[in-house]
Design a protein around this nucleic acid. Structure first.
Lengths: 131, 131
DNA sequence: TATAGTGGTATCCAAAAGTATAGTGATATG
DNA sequence: CATATCACTATACTTTTGGATACCACTATA
């Protein structure tokens, strides 16, 4: 082919989208994985829980994973950990005001996910109890 | 402690939220991982691309990953693969109308991610070129 | 005939994510 | 004194994810 420069060569996304992916990846880091959304949801619902309580509420999670994810969520300012001076000492985890902003993302994921089930698996009207 | 039944024992999320997590997880399966969103974004932007084109557009991806993710996205009805009867035969991948519905989720992830950067890293006004 | 481009596979490997199981020190209860 | 609860940590393991490298058949071009 002559005039190679005429052929429309598609260029890397970075040229068009710059750093667009960076915040998207940040968000996904918070919401992906098996346990982060369940923990956020639990703390949004109950406001404050202890460690063992969360182990029971978030069914199936191991203490190792719970501990790891709580640290991550605290570093990301979504929850706060407080050591209460009781006997025996108890530790409480609570959702922050900022943590509550996750709701918009989660409900968008929920909304899209429900449509996706309909489209891909042809499953309608199942009881995806909205909250 | 007497009156154990008075103590408010927090119950597993499933009691409150039922199958709420199922569609959320479905959605996350589509959007998580390193390459799915970049591929969707590329095909949303260019409408139709060939395999080698995508390899160049989505910088850093290996043919193995590209092949795997394209299969996944096709199974999820987000893109279509067509073998064109040219010489040599070419294969095109295009976004479906349904695939375009991903935009709402991606822009919500973007929006939240930008706020999250501000909050957690105190990074303002950077050029997260919106699209 | 040599080279380059098309659309991929095959194989091996490393790192990350997640599971299973056990145990710790402090305190409180029966 | 035995047992249980709280908030974890430690260790070993498996699974999943992704990366590196090589290679394939086919066709077109120089």
């Amino acid at each position: 082919m002559k005039n190679k420069e005429v052929k429309d060569i598609k260029i890397p996304m970075k040229e068009h989208f710059g750093n667009y992916m960076v915040p998207v990846r940040d968000a996904l880091e918070v919401f992906s994985g098996k346990w982060k959304i369940p923990i956020i949801t639990a703390l949004t619902f109950y406001e404050t829980c202890g460690f063992k309580e969360l182990e029971r509420i978030v069914e199936g999670i191991t203490p190792k994973m719970l501990s790891k994810e709580l640290k991550f969520l605290e570093e990301n300012l979504l929850i706060i950990r407080k050591v209460e001076d009781t006997r025996p000492i108890t530790v409480t985890y609570s959702i922050t005001e900022y943590g509550k902003t996750c709701k918009s993302v989660m409900s968008e994921l929920y909304r899209w996910g429900v449509e996706h089930r309909k489209k891909v698996f042809n499953i309608e009207g199942q009881t995806w109890d909205k909250c």
